[in-house]
């Protein structure tokens, strides 16, 4: 974890960080979507399945997205991805031990998505440090006692919400990037204005 980066980043490196985060979230969205299709097929579930279940899965949907502060935005992302990581590990475990025990390629695809989620967690933490925001502690998730069918459904819902969350993160980081760019532009303009004022006030020396 990047705990020693508290000195903050320059505007350029922060922009680079946000761009990296956007790229990672885009890739995660794409891969989670692909995995969703494979998942449905392997579980014999139908394409138009729309389970009305939550199982403690973070939902990307929010009605006050534009009102969120930077801290709230990054915090909710971090909490969501930490939960996704733990849920995906359970999904992988279920597939390995109960549902699709011999499909190693499929297990590998889930592992790869877990790695991507970890990368997004890392980049969100870096972003929080760069903005001098405190990184919240991770609280353990309560394990649920579910039937095998419910586990199947939950796995699908996890992938569905993960791809939605990745899309929301693309939007979150684009928003943060835009805000920083605007702030940097304002700062540059005010410095230029004050420089002009100073040079007018000081008479030229002969």
């Amino acid at each position: 974890m990047a705990t020693n980066c508290r000195d903050g980043l320059s505007v350029t490196s922060r922009q680079e960080l946000f761009s990296k985060a956007i790229q990672q979230a885009r890739k995660l969205h794409k891969d989670a979507k692909q995995l969703q299709q494979a998942y449905l097929e392997k579980q014999g579930l139908s394409m138009n399945l729309n389970p009305d279940v939550t199982y403690g899965i973070p939902t990307a949907a929010t009605s006050h997205w534009s009102e969120l502060t930077d801290a709230e935005r990054l915090n909710s992302g971090l909490t969501a991805y930490r939960t996704f990581r733990s849920l995906l590990e359970e999904v992988l475990d279920e597939q390995r031990n109960n549902l699709n025990t011999e499909d190693l390629e499929f297990h590998q695809a889930i592992s790869s998505v877990i790695t991507q989620v970890e990368a997004v967690i890392e980049v969100i933490e870096q972003a929080m440090l760069s903005l001098d925001l405190p990184i919240p502690c991770h609280s353990d998730r309560k394990l649920e006692n579910l039937s095998l069918f419910e586990r199947k459904l939950r796995g699908y819902k996890v992938l569905l919400e993960l791809s939605n969350w990745a899309l929301r993160s693309v939007r979150d980081f684009s928003h943060l990037n835009k805000k920083r760019k605007e702030a940097a532009h304002l700062l540059r303009s005010s410095i230029a204005r004050s420089t002009r004022r100073t040079s007018r006030a000081d008479p030229p020396r002969n």
């Binding site: 389970p51 949907a61 459904l153």
Partner: peptide, 14 residues
């Protein structure tokens, strides 16, 4: 997509 998602918030369970 987001607007569509707003309406999916539900707390019921199977």
């Amino acid at each position: 997509l987001f607007l569509a998602l707003f309406f999916l918030e539900t707390e019921s369970s199977l």
